[in-house]
C-alpha cells in the first residue's frame, strides 16, 4: 500500500518535472530550422544571371554548398570572397557551390557580379521561394548537402575562410 503510493507519487513528480524541464530547455536553446541537420534537402530549381537552370536533384553524387546571400548584406560579402578563392579547387573534388541570392532583382545581382568578379554562378530566387522553403530567416546561411541529398549541417552567420574550407572538406563525396 505504502509502496504503491510512493511509486505513484514518484511517477507523477517525474512526469511533471520532465515536462517542465524539457519545455524550459527547448525554450532556452536555439530553434531547429525548417531544414536542418539530417533532413533530406528539399529539391529546388533556380536560374543564374545568364539564364542557366540548376536543379538540386541533378547534383546527386556531389557535395553541395548552398549559400544564401544578398548584395546589401555586407557580412555576406566576405564569405562570398572565401568561396571565390576556393571554388575551383573544390569543383575538381566534386563539391558544388550554389550561391542563392535572397529575393533581389536580376539587374542588381548582375551588376554585383560584374563589380566583384565572382567565378561561380549567382542564382536568382525571386520572391524568396527557395529561401522560405529552407526556412532562411537571416543571412548569410549555408546548407551543407552531401552526395545523397542529406543536410549535413546548417551554418548561420559569417564564417572565416578556415571555417568555410572545413565545411567544403566535409562535403567532398566519400568523406
Amino acid at each position: 500500500m505504502k509502496q504503491k503510493r510512493l511509486i505513484i507519487r514518484s511517477i507523477i513528480l517525474v512526469v511533471m518535472f520532465a515536462a517542465i524541464g524539457y519545455t524550459l530547455i527547448s525554450h532556452f536553446t536555439e530553434d531547429r530550422g525548417r531544414v536542418d541537420r539530417d533532413d533530406i534537402a528539399p529539391n529546388f530549381a533556380v536560374v543564374d544571371t545568364e539564364g542557366n537552370l540548376l536543379e538540386l536533384a541533378d547534383l546527386e553524387g556531389k557535395g553541395v554548398y548552398v549559400n544564401f546571400w544578398a548584395t546589401w548584406c555586407s557580412v555576406c560579402r566576405d564569405k562570398m570572397e572565401h568561396l571565390k578563392n576556393n571554388y575551383d579547387d573544390y569543383r575538381d573534388k566534386g563539391v558544388v557551390i550554389v550561391a542563392i541570392n535572397s529575393g533581389e532583382g536580376s539587374t542588381v545581382i548582375q551588376r554585383h557580379m560584374e563589380r566583384f568578379q565572382y567565378n561561380y554562378p549567382l542564382y536568382i530566387d525571386r520572391g524568396n521561394l527557395v529561401g522560405n522553403a529552407y526556412g532562411v530567416m537571416e543571412i548569410p546561411v549555408a546548407f551543407l548537402i552531401d552526395e545523397n541529398g542529406v543536410v549535413l549541417d546548417r551554418e548561420i552567420g559569417p564564417k572565416s575562410e578556415e571555417k568555410v574550407i572545413q565545411s567544403l572538406e566535409r562535403l567532398i563525396p566519400g568523406n
Binding site: N43, V46, E55
Partner: peptide
C-alpha cells in the same frame, strides 16, 4: 510539383 523555385 515537388520542386520550388523556377516554374512554381
Amino acid at each position: 510539383t515537388g520542386t520550388v523555385g523556377v516554374g512554381t
